[in-house]
Design a protein around this nucleic acid. Sequence first.
DNA 1: TAGATTGTTAATCGATTAACAATC
DNA 2: TAGATTGTTAATCGATTAACAATC
Lengths: 212, 212
Amino acid sequence: MSKKISMAVIRRLPKYYRYLKELMDKDVNRISSKELSQIIGFTASQIRQDLNNFGGFGQQGYGYNVSELYDEIGKILGLNKEYNTILVGAGNLGQAIANYSGFQKSGFKIKAIFDANPRIIGLKIRDLEVLDVELMEEYVKENDIKIAAICIPKEKAQQVADILVRAGIKGIWNFAPIDLHLPDDVVVENVHLKESLFTLSYLLNENEEATK
Amino acid sequence: MSKKISMAVIRRLPKYYRYLKELMDKDVNRISSKELSQIIGFTASQIRQDLNNFGGFGQQGYGYNVSELYDEIGKILGLNKEYNTILVGAGNLGQAIANYSGFQKSGFKIKAIFDANPRIIGLKIRDLEVLDVELMEEYVKENDIKIAAICIPKEKAQQVADILVRAGIKGIWNFAPIDLHLPDDVVVENVHLKESLFTLSYLLNENEEATK
DNA sequence: TAGATTGTTAATCGATTAACAATC
DNA sequence: TAGATTGTTAATCGATTAACAATC
């Protein structure tokens, strides 16, 4: 088995991907780790180390081919694949997620939307009618659903996650403010907005102290 | 000046805060670092190290008083204060943010909402009418606005940030998929949803490989 | 070929974990 | 007092940075 990649490296990959896209849009087709370091803010050394976890994408004396590297990182991130996705919880945040076309474009196809609230069930979001969450387990089993985005109250999140796992889901994008307990073969990525805001609050205070 | 706290520690604080709240809700009023480590998933040693960055909140032979520690961490995070906040960009995501009462409860009071789109300007969200973004700079200056949440397209994000900085904002909660360039006395916390989703995608693929 | 820049090893730095004396 | 658990120092581990030989 290949060497385990650290989370620190993994979380930098999408940022490389984003900056490389920008360079492509500017018709830059070649970049050195030093140049990239100046625009992305990591050290050149770190950039080379990061990339070499996955392969030798550069060329001595030349640097990296931008579009080639972009494609390679896309593949490493699995963005060349498509994933059948569902959304659970169609409140304000859920609707925002469903309406953002960027996710669909990146290969995360929302196939169905579920909610428990009778006032939301039946609502049309994009071209999808919100379904009763009671139908979720069956739907996931029968439609090869790989990912679920869950935007529901924390009280229900673990219970819904358990059902999803039972139905064969492989990844959960969790917006509920709770740490889910899941088997090892199911991955989770949390978006804890409140924690993010609290971090901002801390930094704000720290900065105030510093400038006193 | 006191020792610089690392981002790793800072990002754990909101999680301590969340778990301590849960313990309070369960009427647990005393906890040892060992017990806490079992429910939160950090080592007991790390918990003690983290907390001792800010003070000796525990007592030998006893552990920590839950509600006391909760309050202390709240203070460290600056959650005992209130911040006048504005929201810029009232699209799907912006509306979701505006409608989430949890932020208001934590002291981040949304005083005004701005957008550039004539079809959104005038719309009512909660009890606030969406204002023309042209009015933003003046509003921030005159109403002691400290924080702005920005949920706008990446093309406009830096420009809006520059105006906000000029108007005296101190913190930006940035949902636009871009790294803002800001002066040192303005703090930023990014919520890059696409990067989060891409991370999930990576983990999903990595997991598939592992189970092959 | 000479110059540039990678890939990779070694050195440094910082964060986490372990250990234990202090003390409630 | 004896037992429990902190606060804190020391040891370990892992991530970042520096250096440089390899090579385009």
